[in-house]
Design a protein around this nucleic acid. Structure first.
Lengths: 216, 216
DNA sequence: GACCGATATATCGGAGCGATATATCGGTGA
DNA sequence: TCACCGATATATCGCTCCGATATATCGGTC
């Protein structure tokens, strides 16, 4: 999830951690307040598996003093920069080809994310890179998940709980309904060339959209 | 967060873990899919600090029906387990007085939760136990958080990003606006004794349209 | 040249999740 | 009757993510 965000942002341009965090805050606003406690480990993870790589930020090629503080590395560091040890400079990261592939994969993957608000927001923010068909797939799966949620919620008895719980339920259903209409609009906004009329049914009990809502 | 949910549910009646998970799923629906990996540790935590206690579920001391015939063979293979056939029965938990106090405290606490969807949903679901004043405080803080988010979002330039990102932003703002109106309706539904008429601005077109859930 | 706030990287403990293991219980049917 | 199956139930493991915190560097400013 975080990896998707990082790769998506790095697709545009190389960035370092601090900047990455700021951009992500701007892109997703209140929805996703990333933390350094997840960002830096995620960066190391991605670098380790070859999805991103460090690009020297204009000046120093920092010789990577691996966490274990090995004598060998330190010696090398001293040879290159005699005076200052462990100079902590900006480390900008760049997307590799492998990382690009991974990004596309993550955008398309359906791993329990069709139902997840944050993940879908992330996918939507970066799906501009995707080819139209894959993008439509993402939207369609999201639509199916929302429709399913709505149908399931309607099936449960409406009389449960106290005043507050009932209000909560009703409000949530309305929100889901609006989300559904929004995704429908997004789908309609795609070049609706009827690409491989595949999973149009998927959502089950609700055939045509714009129907079955409380109609306010 | 999970503790709030557990205590809130146990306030009504003693329950065991499995049931707890199911109830929570019903109460919060799609918003909160609890996991055993968090539930059982949380239960132990709460039991350890005295907020809940185990209550024997009516028939604990089962007189050990005949597992004897199989035991001879299997016992050898399972020696790593203490051969004490501690019959694994339901362990129901009950709220202690201390736990009740903790629940009230968690419901009122403002620890970064005013801005959190799930936490607010949880608080709302259980705030029926609270006295009216405290309840109004919860609602008011939530309202302030939403208004702040809206104001902040409106301050940022609206032209950023591609088509999808812009649509995402717009949709999110509309959602926040609706949430705000909803909370306003909830507040209006309380005994509106005009408590501290402070931040009434900021939302704009939200007067009292009594068209929400709590029409009772 | 000492100080300060913004920038920047990093780690730690804890919470929550998904997957998985294990055990028991109530039926169903052969 | 009893073998099996699916629902019920408790528990743990490894992981990701978060909030708090520590530390270092940089650009001002007085």
């Amino acid at each position: 999830m975080l990896e998707l965000a990082i790769l998506g942002l790095l697709k545009e341009q190389p960035l370092h951690g601090y900047e990455l965090k700021k951009r992500l805050g701007e892109t997703l606003g209140s929805l996703w307040g990333i933390s350094y406690g997840s960002l830096y480990p995620a960066l190391r993870r991605l670098e380790h598996d070859g999805s991103i790589e460090i690009v020297a930020p204009e000046t120093v090629a920092v010789p990577m003093p691996a966490t274990g503080s090995l004598d060998g590395d330190l010696a090398v560091a001293r040879l290159r920069r005699p005076a200052k040890s462990t100079r902590r400079t900006k480390k900008a990261y760049r997307l590799t080809e492998q990382g690009d592939a991974r990004l596309s994969q993550l955008l398309v993957d359906d791993d329990a994310s069709g139902d997840d608000e944050r993940t879908f927001a992330l996918k939507l923010a970066f799906c501009g890179n995707l080819d139209p068909e894959a993008r439509l797939g993402v939207l369609t799966r999201r639509r199916a998940a929302l429709a399913d949620r709505l149908a399931r919620a309607r099936r449960t008895s409406p009389g449960r709980g106290d005043r507050y719980t009932r209000s909560l339920f009703e409000h949530r259903n309305q929100s889901t309904q609006r989300d559904l209409e929004w995704v429908d609009a997004l789908i309609a906004g795609e070049g609706h060339t009827d690409v491989a009329g595949s999973d149009r049914r998927a959502s089950g009990p609700s055939q045509s959209h714009t129907e079955g809502a409380p109609a306010s």
